[in-house]
Design a protein around this nucleic acid. Sequence first.
RNA 1: GCCAUCUUAGCUCAGUUGGUAGAGCAGCGCAUUCGUAACGCGCAGGUCAGGAGUUCGAAUCUCCUAGAUGGCUCCA
Length: 616
Amino acid sequence: MSDKQAENLYAMRHSLAHIMASAIQHLWPDVKLGVGPVVEDGFYYDVDLGDGEQLSADDFERIEAEMQKIIKAAEPFERLEMPVGEAVAWAKKYSQPYKEELLNDLQRSGTTVAKDLDSAELGLAAEGDSKVEKVSFYRNGDFTDLCRGPHVESTGKVGAFKLMRVAGAYWRGKENNPQMQRVYGVAFATPKELRQYLDMLEEAKKRDHRKLGQELDLYVMSELVGSGLPIFTPRGTVLREELAAFSNELRQRYDFQKVWTPHITKKDLYEKSGHWAKFGDELFLVKSQETSDELVMKPMNCPHHTRIYASQPRSYRDLPIRYLETTTDYRDEKTGELGGLNRVRSLTQDDSHVFCRHDQIETEIDQLLACADELYATVGMKLRVRLSYRDESDAYLGDKNLWESAQKQLKAAVVANELDYFEQEGEAAFYGPKIDFMATDAIGREHQVATVQLDFVQPERFGLEYAAEDGSQGQPVMIHCALLGSIERFLSVYIEHTGGKFPIWTAPEQIRLISVNQEPETLAFVDSVVQQAKKLRLRVMVDNSNESVGKKIRNAEIWKVPYTVVLGEKEIAGGEVTPRVRGDMVVKEPPRSYTVDEFLKTVANEAKSRVSKTSL
RNA sequence: GCCAUCUUAGCUCAGUUGGUAGAGCAGCGCAUUCGUAACGCGCAGGUCAGGAGUUCGAAUCUCCUAGAUGGCUCCA
């Protein structure tokens, strides 16, 4: 899309927000309007119908019909400006208290907007940081709204749209503000693009990891266990363990050592690290019935790893020291935030911590970037990174100058590795800046996955030291890294990315053997193949049920098994098999026969080399 | 945590204005012994999420609780 097209699409979406607000105002004349910005794929408008009246999806048809009327009328968008004071009077006159509040803030702060407001998002009027004197309005037909534009020429030129959903949203995103109703719409320049977008949503629905998780028997939830606490079945556990093993293997190439830490600890550990002050209300508390100890479930692992480091005097020669632990943490997330595997209360991290000297930071980060690169190339997801910096708030610990240099070092590493990156303030951890990896899945959605974090704060708080070359005491730097992130979240992404069609190396079931009949000779032959496969550590399952071959093939397809092999008289006689290959893996046609040994060894090699296509 | 919607058999879903629950698949049994996406017949399976209320009568109406979904807020 050219810049010009993008601008035009933006104006269309923005104009649609106005048209929707206008339509809602026609239908509910007393509506109080909030803000109506453009968002990814569309727009929304926050409205308050008053008296607690609620919109529902059932109202969309009426609203859309009213919007179509406005569109048909092709009302021109007119821009008008007025001094802020006059604008406040306007808001009062039309009893628009939310607009009035925005305008008052605008006037009072003297700059574009109060700090918590993003003028672009709010569609606000002023530009630059200079004192605001005038604000702009846009008018179409009988509807006028505070807005900085731009808009399309007339309501007739807004492309194709669809109202999608309505949801509660706090006024200005503040939890204690009144809750308004946010009506979302998607919009595109042409009906065809809208269609494509809706098709993508359909596809996403088909791939939903919660749906596939059930269909493919990967994990279950139980009300007896609690929300946000997924339980992994044998199949799901294979996925978890294969992925974790790969993540570990990558780092073990760089001499990371596995460690192990308990899941509960005294809260003193987190008071020292600084986590208690920041996340105390999201920790699970554990009470000892024996002593007066107040324990907590660990929400992360870095403070534990500092205990291993600190357990011995360290020399500059010992560094870097690299610990690796794949372990489960527990966080008491708010119930409304839980969903599938994406956000859980028991999350497993493939966590690692490097303790190193300042002059080793660059090499260490390079190695971790290489690990992330290889992992995501293997699973077939494109990466870009977000450099997550601090902002000016007081949410961060440690010396500001150290932060500055840490942020610079992260950026330098990212640039040196020629990674596609963007920078964002306010996304850092409280103890240091991060490189956050964003992976794009098979249907174009981006997810946050791996992370590399630089930390000067915890070494200081824990008083970590090493004996430097000149005999003085140096302080190591910590580099946190998780390649998969949370394994649960990664799985949700991975399941949707693959659509449940897992490559050989992660497939819970790699080969399904189907017996043509239940004669003893057939079953014996099937069993001999199973024994050979097991020797090669292949995950093989047998379907010798009393069903038709067609039915059994169908089942194997439904379970998305990579290789399905029918075994009967022909195979027994010839000792050769003709594997049926799952559609997405095929690179060449037609299939041919292989000796059982040749077939199994090929599959074992594919698993070992983590390929996604078949070499058969 | 907040707002909205939802919860009927293992799964996917029917269930008309309140009159006491139904299908397909899966499961089990019988029959069949089958060649690359569904053979047939039969059987069993539900405190309609849980609780309280309104009513002669509640899957259906009201309230509470739990869980799920979509958002908001948050994410070490």
